[in-house]
Design a protein around this nucleic acid. Structure first.
Lengths: 225, 225
DNA sequence: GCAAAACCTCAAGATTTTCTCAAGTTCGGA
DNA sequence: TCCGAACTTGAGAAAATCTTGAGGTTTTGC
């Protein structure tokens, strides 16, 4: 199911956890030291890392920092109960979840599933992608070439409408109907203004468009280049 | 009734106890060595472990430590009378109860029922982790960077709702429906005020959010940074 | 090439939404 | 019953957003 790297210095625990996760169909590697762990992460890019604190060679926070410099792999930190708060505070140092020892393999596997699920794109996401544009109505985030756009509500709705039917020309009347709530007439300049601000935020102009192409006398369509 | 693992090197005792517990409807496995016992625990996740001290291959305390590293299974330690004090001291090494040999199966079964009743560890927990935020609806505890937050009921429910769908924008209407029980309208400022107190307790403000991000005209979403 | 129509953009004013404080009100337990 | 925590409500201020008017630019039709 998943490729897992266990970094744990206690060889007995390592053996047991490895065996039981492998028994559940996972592909498990393990190392006894932080440095070996780092090496392994770089070499094999596992899906999840389970990282024991209290390793002999490196402090956990230190390791996480180094790890995050080279990888985005989800990390589950395992810690003894008396180090509890320390582990939790690692969550904002780049750890994705934590588990308190002693832990059952059931719990561990639940955590693994959770972090994997978290990273994986949700089943039904309603994202729209057009060229370098990504528009996600659930988080209401729009990105252009990876960087977040700061859009107002109407701007976002408008962009999503256009992206949802990218390639098609959409009339201003239809925009008025979909984004605003006014199906009747009222060909306002309001739409124009919003299109204008959108273009500005997309880094383009009406006369040199990259995405928002005016079709004179008809409407606007969203296509790349 | 229960799935029981007996770890006992004396084959005669093993046979007898197994037979009589099985005769009372339990599902009993047994092993003769500590290492086999560990393996069996990992493989089958029994409900209770009855652990004889004085096993040939490992010291009891040692075994308990290893066992606790991988499992939360309740353990009843069985010990000969002359080792009595040693068994009691194991109680704080992770044992859940102890029984002195020779014991009757009646007594043993009473102990088994007791430890099972005392606390079946929750199968799965429904914790949500978002950055340095940990929200556990089972204990109704929320932690920020490891320290416990003092939240009122509504505040907790609100935070959990947002964390449960972190990354997604949640409308105030939906909060009203989920946290309060008023699916109809009621554009109240109540939600606003609770969000405000939440932000205060999270050590952030609306204009400089760390977790609770307002999406103007739409709602609020919980994401880190 | 010319005029009309359509379109674009700016900037100021209007509107809506949100935030927070403070003052009630309710509810449950001592 | 009384007290206190929790919740609700009201109001004003602050933000953010939306709309509108005016003027300039591009396109279309002739």
């Amino acid at each position: 199911m998943a490729r897992i790297l266990l970094v744990e210095d206690d060889s007995e625990i390592r053996r047991l956890v490895t065996a039981s996760l492998a028994g559940r169909g996972h592909d498990v590697e393990s190392t006894a030291t932080a440095l070996d762990g780092l090496r392994e992460i770089v070499a094999t890019s596992p899906d999840v890392v389970i990282l024991d604190l209290g390793l002999p060679d490196l402090d956990g926070r230190e390791l996480l920092r180094m790890l995050r410099a080279v990888s985005q792999v989800p990390v589950i930190v395992a810690t003894a109960r008396d180090q509890d708060s320390s582990a939790i505070s690692l969550l904002d140092s780049g750890a994705d979840d934590y588990i308190v020892k002693p832990y059952s393999v059931d719990h561990l596997e639940a955590r693994i599933r959770a972090v994997l699920r978290r990273g994986a794109p949700p089943d039904d996401d309603r994202r729209r992608v057009v060229g370098g544009l990504v528009i996600d109505p659930d988080s209401r985030e729009a990105r252009l070439d990876g960087s977040l756009l700061d859009l107002s509500p109407k701007e976002f709705d408008l962009l999503f409408l256009l992206a949802d039917r990218s390639g098609q020309v959409i009339s201003k009347r239809e925009m008025m109907a979909q984004v605003w709530r006014e199906p009747y007439g009222g060909a306002d300049r309001t739409v124009d203004v919003h299109l204008s601000t959108l273009r500005k935020k997309l880094g383009e102009t009406a006369s040199a468009p990259r995405y928002l192409h005016t079709v004179h006398g008809v409407g606007v369509k969203l296509v790349e280049s």
